[in-house]
Design a protein around this nucleic acid. Structure first.
Lengths: 350, 350
DNA sequence: TGTTAGCACTCACAATGGCTGAGTGCTAAA
DNA sequence: TTTAGCACTCAGCCATTGTGAGTGCTAACA
C-alpha cells in the first residue's frame, strides 16, 4: 500500500467489478473474466494493469502468483464506503419483514429472538440480536412470594416486559405477611431503578426499613444479592448452520472452529460488542474481517445496526457471515429490520 | 449371520480384543496387531480364521477386502452384554461428581443442565439430560398478578421448583382485586394438578367460578389456554463439540450433519426418547448406532440411564457419542451420575 | 484335528509426474 | 495510453506406480 490517493473512475469500476464478482462466485477473479462479465470496453491487458495498481495500493490481493485476485479488507471497505449502491428492498420483502412482526410478541426477549431468526432466514447468514442490557432496563414491578414453607421466589418485570425470577431456599420459614410487606416496600422504593444498580440501590433504601423489620430486610438483601448474578445482556444467534454452507468454511478444521465460536456465545457477544463499539453510529455499520481472531477465524464480517427505544440506542442487531457477503443487500435488510425492532420496543415499553 | 450359536472362549477373547483395540485407536484392526497387542499365544493365521468366523456370524465386518475388521452393531452388542467388565469409578472420580452436586441448584432444570455439562466434561462426549416432562410435574403454586394496567403475568411453580411465567396483554384493564381472587381460586383448585392436564382441569373447575365472576374467569381461561404452549420436556445438551474431535466425524459433510443434528434439539429429543423407550430399564441402557438416521448419521450411540424422584422414573440422562465409545467407562459414569440426580431431585421435591 | 507357516493376492493410500487452463507480467506495436 | 502477443506460473486433475497392512488358501506340522 504505497499511496492513499483517490481512485480514478476506471479503477473504481474495476474494483467494484472484482468485488461483485467475488461476492457471488467465491472464486478469485481474473482480468479476462472481468471484461467478459462487465463489458467495460477494455482489453484484459488494460484491466490487468489496473488490477496490478489496485494490488499495490492494498485493495486487492493474490492468493498466489497467477491466480485471480480477491479483495482485501481495505478493498471491501472502499467498496462499502464509496462504491456500493444500497440495494433497496422490494415491497415484497418489506411486507415479509413487517408481517413477521405482527405476531404476538410479549416482551423484548421474544422480539429479539424472533429478530435473529428472521434475519438468519432472509439473509441466509447467521442472524444476531442483542437483548437490552441491564444498563438500559429498569424495574417495573417487583414481587416476592413464598412457594413453600422454605422457599421464596422473587419476580422482577422490567420495562421491556421481560420477566425474570430467582428462587431462594431458606433455613427458616417466613410468614406470607412479611413477604407482602416486603413486596410493597420494594415496589415503592425500587420502581424505575436500573437493573444493573439494583443491589447498590437497595442497600441505601433499606436502611430505613431495617430498623422496624429486621428479618424481612435481611431476606431482601439476600434476594437482591442474588439478582445481579442473572444479569443478562443476552445474545440471540440463529441460523449459524448457514455458515457451513459457505465454501470458505468447508475445510475440515474450519467446521470445528466455527462451531466453537458459536458455542462460546458469551465470549462472542463480548467480542462483537467491542468490535462494533468503534463503528457504532446512527445507522448501519459494517465490520469487515477480524471478528473471530480469538477463535482462529479471521474472515468473518458483521453487518449491524443499532435499535432504539424512545430515541435512545439500546442494543444491536445484525447479520454475521463470511467476509465475502452481499453487503448491499444485507445493509438494507438489517437497516429496515432495526427500524421495525425499534418500533416494537417503543410500543412495548410505552 | 448364519448361526446364533454361543461363542467359545477363544472367539470371545478375540472379539473383545478387536473391540477394545478399535475403541481406542479407531483404526480397523487386523490379525497381526491383535496378537501383538494382546499376547494371546496364537499366531496371526489362527486369529484370522477366528475373525473370519466372527465375520460370518455377523459380529465383525470388513470395510473392504484386505483391511482389518471393525465391530458391527451386533458385535458391540455382544461385547456390551457379555464381554465388557464395567470399569468402576475411582474414588477420585466419584468425589469429583459428588462435589459438582454440592453447588447451589435451586430447581430441577438447573440440576439437569448442570448434569449435562458435567457428563460432557468427564466423558469427553456430548452430555444429555432430559428435564422432567409435564406428565410428571404438577402445580405447586400458581399466581396471577398485574404488572401494568394492561398487562398480566401468570406464574406457575411446579413440584421441582421450576418457575415458568406467561405474559398476557389485555385489551381492557383488570382490577388487582379480581386478580387476587383469581389467584386464590386457582391455587385452591389447581394445586397438585398435573401440568399436562392443566387446561383440561381448569375448564371443569372453572364453571362454578364462572357464574359469579364472569370477567375474571374468562381471563383465567385465556391465561391457561396459553399455558400449554410452553410445555417443556426440555433436553439439555452440552459439549457437542467433542464429537467433532472424533475421527469418524472429520469428513466435510459430516460436520454439517452433526451440527444440524444438534440444531434440531426438539427433534433430537424425540428421536432419543423413542430409541431409548425400547431399552428403558431399571439400570443403564446402551443404544448402539441408528440414533441419527433421520439426519444421515447412522453411527451414533447413546449410553443412558433413568433418574428417579421418590422411586418413580422421571426422565433420562446420558452421553452421546460415536458408535466407537468406551462403553465400560461411560456406563459407570452415567450410572453413578443418575444416582446423584435422583438424590438431588428427591430432595428438591420433598 | 486343530494350528501354523508360507505365499500370492487385494486394495486403500501416498507420492509422482504430466497435462491443462486460467491467469499473470512484460515488451513492443498501434 | 491502450492493446496484442508471448513466455511463464501454478493449482487442480488424472493416471501411474509403489508400498504396506491385511487377507484367503493350501500344505505342512504337532
Amino acid at each position: 500500500m504505497t499511496d492513499a490517493r483517490e481512485l480514478n473512475e476506471r479503477e473504481q469500476q474495476i474494483l467494484q467489478a472484482v468485488v461483485n464478482s467475488y461476492i457471488t462466485t467465491a472464486d478469485p477473479v481474473g482480468s479476462r473474466s472481468v471484461v467478459k462479465r462487465f463489458e467495460l470496453g477494455l482489453s484484459p491487458a488494460t484491466v490487468r494493469n489496473v488490477m496490478a495498481d489496485l494490488e499495490e495500493m492494498g485493495y486487492l490481493q493474490q492468493i498466489h502468483t497467477s491466480s485471480g485476485r480477491i479483495p482485501t479488507d481495505a478493498g471491501y471497505r472502499y467498496y462499502v464506503n464509496y462504491l456500493m449502491h444500497v440495494q433497496e428492498l422490494t415491497l415484497r420483502e418489506r411486507n415479509r419483514i413487517e408481517h413477521e412482526f405482527t405476531e404476538k410478541l410479549n416482551d423484548a426477549d421474544e422480539v429479539l429472538q424472533h429478530t435473529s431468526q428472521l434475519l438468519a432466514l432472509i439473509s441466509n447468514q447467521a442472524g444476531l440480536a442483542e437483548s437490552p442490557g441491564d444498563d438500559h432496563a429498569y424495574v417495573n414491578r417487583i414481587e416476592v412470594m413464598s412457594v413453600s414453607t422454605h422457599r421464596v421466589v422473587m419476580l422482577i418485570v422490567d420495562n421491556y416486559g421481560r420477566v425474570r425470577t430467582q428462587t431462594v431456599n431458606l433455613d427458616e420459614a417466613v410468614h406470607p405477611d412479611q413477604l407482602q410487606a416486603l413486596s410493597r416496600f420494594l415496589n415503592d422504593h425500587l420502581y424505575r431503578v436500573r437493573l444493573d444498580g439494583l443491589s447498590g440501590a437497595i442497600e441505601n433504601q433499606l436502611k430505613t426499613f431495617l430498623d422496624e423489620r429486621r428479618k424481612t430486610a435481611e431476606l431482601a438483601l439476600r434476594l437482591l444479592g442474588l439478582a445481579p448474578q442473572q444479569t443478562r445482556k443476552q445474545l440471540f444467534l440463529e441460523g449459524a448452520g448457514h455458515l457451513f454452507a459457505q465454501p470458505e468454511f468447508q475445510g475440515v478444521d474450519r467446521a470445528k472452529e466455527v462451531f466453537d465460536l458459536f458455542e462460546e456465545r458469551t465470549v462472542l457477544a463480548e467480542v462483537l460488542r467491542n468490535a462494533l463499539a468503534d463503528e457504532r453510529r446512527v445507522s448501519t455499520s459494517i465490520h469487515i474481517g477480524r471478528i473471530g481472531d480469538e477463535f482462529g477465524l479471521e474472515d468473518i464480517s458483521v453487518v449491524a445496526s443499532p435499535y432504539y427505544c424512545k430515541d435512545e440506542p439500546i442494543g444491536m442487531i445484525g447479520v454475521l457471515g463470511p467476509r465475502r457477503m452481499p453487503y448491499s443487500r444485507l445493509t438494507s435488510i438489517v437497516d429496515y429490520t432495526a427500524g421495525m425492532v425499534s418500533r416494537m420496543l417503543t410500543h412495548l415499553a410505552r
